[in-house]
Every structure is written in C-alpha cells, then in structure tokens.
Design a binder for these strands. Structure first.
Lengths: 224, 224
DNA sequence: AGGCTAGTGACAGTCACTGACAATTGACAA
DNA sequence: TTGTCAATTGTCAGTGACTGTCACTAGCCT
C-alpha cells in the first residue's frame, strides 16, 4: 500500500508501475465518458471502450467492477470533496448551514481537481447523461443514499448526537439531500448547463428549505 | 384493452384468456419473490423461476421487462394506493398533512389487496430484500423519485400552484420522501418488521419534519 | 543478472435480455 | 360445430455484461 522506494521518492514519484496504472485508468475514464456522452450509455459497449484504449476487456473489469462504475469515477471525486468541506466547517455553524456552505464550497473547489482527469465540460455532460439514463440514474440515487449515511454521521458528530438514537440527523440530511437531488434534476432540464448555473440553482433551492429546518435544534428529544 | 364481450361479462368475468394470463403473471410474481427472499436475488436465475412456473424464459420477459421488474410488482400496488389516497384527501388539509395522512391510510388499506397476489408476510420480506440488495435498492430509489414527480404534481394541483414555476411543491415532496426513505431503511434494520411496525415508525419519523415544513405556505413567493 | 510478483491477455463459460419465426390456443362468426 | 383470426407462447440464435482460470509479460528488488 505505502512503503515508498529506498531513495525516498516523494509523493510525486510512485514508481513506473503505479504511473502506468494511473494512466490506463484515466484513459479508460476519459474514453468511456466521451463515448457515453456522444453515443449514449446503452449504445456504447465495453468492447468499444477497451478497443479505443487498447487493453483487454478483462483489464477494464479489473479497474471497474461494472460498466456503470466508470461513469461515476469523476462524481466520486466531487463527493469526497464535499465530505472534506463539510468536515472542515466551523463547529459553530448549525447543521443545515454547514451542509449548505460545504456544497457551495465543493462546487467552487473541485473545478481544478476534475480538470486533471477530464475536461470540466465533459464532466458536466456526464452529469447530464447520468440524469437522463435510467440505469445510471438508479445507481446515482443509490450512491447518493450511501453518501447520505456518511453525511448524517458527520453531522451527528458535529452536534454531539448519536445517529442511531436520535433520528434528527438522518432526517435533516434526507431532507437536505432530497432538495439537492431536485436541484440536480432541474439543472439538467434547464437551459443554463454550466458550473455557475448549478451553483446558483443550489443556493436558490436551498433558500427555501433552510429556514424551516434550522429551528428547534439542540433541544432534548420530545417523548415518543 | 376494453370492449367486453356481447353478453356483458361484468368486471369479474374477463374471459378465459385474460384469467389465464393473470394466473401466469401472479404465479411468476409469487415464485419469483419466494425464491428471491429465500435464496437471495442474485443467486436466483430467471431460468429457475420459469422452470418452477413451467413457462419459457421468453414468456417471463413478455410479462416483465427485466428480472428487476418482477421484484417490484407488489410495490407498485402500494404506490398506486398511496396516490389514490393522496388525491382523495380533503382540500382543506395542508400539503404535508395530506401526504402524511395518505401514507398512513395507504398502509392501512393495502393489506387486503396485497393478500390476493402474495401473502403479506412475503411482501414484507420482499421489502426487506429490496433494501438489502444493492441492485434492487438502486431501482427502488429511481422508482421513488419518479413517484415523487407524480406526487409533486398532485400537491401542486391541490395548492393551485404550477410545479414548473414554483419550486416549493417539489421541495416539500423531496423532503417528505427523503424522510419516508429513511423510515424504510430504519424499519429494515430494526427488529419490529411488521406492518404495524412500519406504520408506527412512519408516524414517529414524520412527526419530526411536519411542524417545520407546514409553515409559511400559500404566501407569495419571495423575490429571488 | 535473475528471481519474485503485480498486472495483463486469451479463452471459456454464465446469465440477462432480444429479435424472428413457428406452433398453439382462446375468441368469434358462419 | 367448425373454420378463421389474432393473441399468446415456445424455440432458436445471437448480443453484451461479467467472471474464473491460467499462462505470460514486465516492473521491482536483491
């Protein structure tokens, strides 16, 4: 896993083997997303992808557990960025404000990181493709709900609550995520399909839920 | 589709052909759910199902577009019951109360209807299986989000709003559905895996969101 | 230089799913 | 009752995603 070579190769020199792997992986992602967004997900076969990258099909499935997974490679980066941003929010912020600010910070921060793998433009087209491909939308929603669990635990820790005893963290996160999901859908349908567009839409939609949910927190749980 | 026979066969006599089809379909659902819940979804092949029902695989795929779809046959009935219940709520009720009462009414009303196809016990085990099978969970969430769109439109009509101009119906429904989803997950993890259990849990969880969301409605939209 | 091992390719096989066509069987009229 | 029509079903062949196996190639380490 770690254990760098003898002459202390910094974090930027992971050895030839590692770099080769990274290049293959990135190439697979780039080619796959390019094909998906131009021809459509269903009409693109794994064989097409591996042919363009010149690896065997077996190799593709060593990097990605499924054809679906490769479509979410970039998505994953954004999610990780969001969780990082949320964890870094000042403890004074209420849970809703923290989530809201973390989302906005994530939208601001990932632009550059994404570019190292695929052009931002391709990322946005991928986002749109996921929303409009039933099979991928399903996976996207499952991934989102897994992310919700992570977020709920972060929020609970911030508030000093136990996720399993107190339903409020999960409920707040579920409501918040629901709004985020609607935002994504509306963005996909709307005309302004840019990074700024989704950022603005996020703020605009969250403004309608925020005030309602930030009340009554940190009080004892009412008896059932 | 319609056009009943000459001697006016009532709704209880749809002809031999129709009845045969219905029996085949029900048998496929029953056998499939039984196998899914005992062996697991992934470990059950379509061939096993059609073998037990003694039809060809091709016939299975004429009734269900996919192996996944058969797992949601009963789920669909519950959803339809919910939409019916929601539409039937008195106009005086606020959107949140209407949704809440419709869910509870649906839980009360479907028990009998389900029993005509599969035992309620099998339905509950199916619900649990869906929640714990990643591939099915994904589909379940997509179906839920489609249902959300339907609900949002019903809610909007009740309130005399335009879903595309006013974000509040979709947001309220998204938040509500988020809570319902968490409820389902918690029910699956909890010990009380009965119809009463999920009903009680539904009430208990919704109580935490209701007051917060039922405020400030039917007022003009604040300027952006 | 040579052994070790991670990574890859080639191959065979399973399973979900589809199109095409032939066989069967209710439905309905003569 | 019987013949015709149309709906339903079965058979067959094929595609595409995905997996296990095994031999082989190429970085890595001594």
């Amino acid at each position: 896993m770690s254990a760098p070579g003898p002459s202390a190769p910094g974090p930027s020199a992971p050895g030839l083997r590692e770099r080769k792997k990274q290049r293959t992986r990135d190439a697979l992602v780039r080619v796959a997303l390019e094909l998906f967004t131009t021809q459509g997900y269903e009409r693109t076969t794994v064989d097409e992808i591996v042919e363009a990258v010149e690896v065997s099909q077996r190799t593709f499935f060593r990097y990605f557990a499924s054809k679906e997974e490769v479509a979410f490679a970039v998505q994953r980066m954004v999610e990780e960025e969001f969780v990082r941003a949320l964890t870094a929010r000042p403890p004074g912020e209420g849970p809703f404000d923290a989530m809201r600010n973390a989302v906005l910070a994530a939208w601001d921060g990932v632009g550059d990181a994404i570019d190292e793998v695929v052009p931002v433009d391709l990322y946005l087209r991928t986002f749109f493709m996921i929303e409009s491909t039933p099979a991928l939308l399903a996976v996207h929603l499952r991934r989102s709900s897994e992310l919700e669990e992570t977020i709920a635990r972060v929020v609970a820790r911030r508030e000093g609550l136990d996720v399993d005893a107190d339903p409020r963290p999960r409920i707040a996160v579920a409501a918040f995520s629901g709004v985020m999901r609607v935002t994504g859908q509306m963005w996909g349908k709307g005309p302004d399909r840019t990074l700024e567009g989704i950022r603005a839409l996020t703020e605009w939609y969250l403004d309608h839920l925020g005030p309602a949910l930030s009340l009554h927190w940190r009080e004892p749980l009412p008896r059932r």
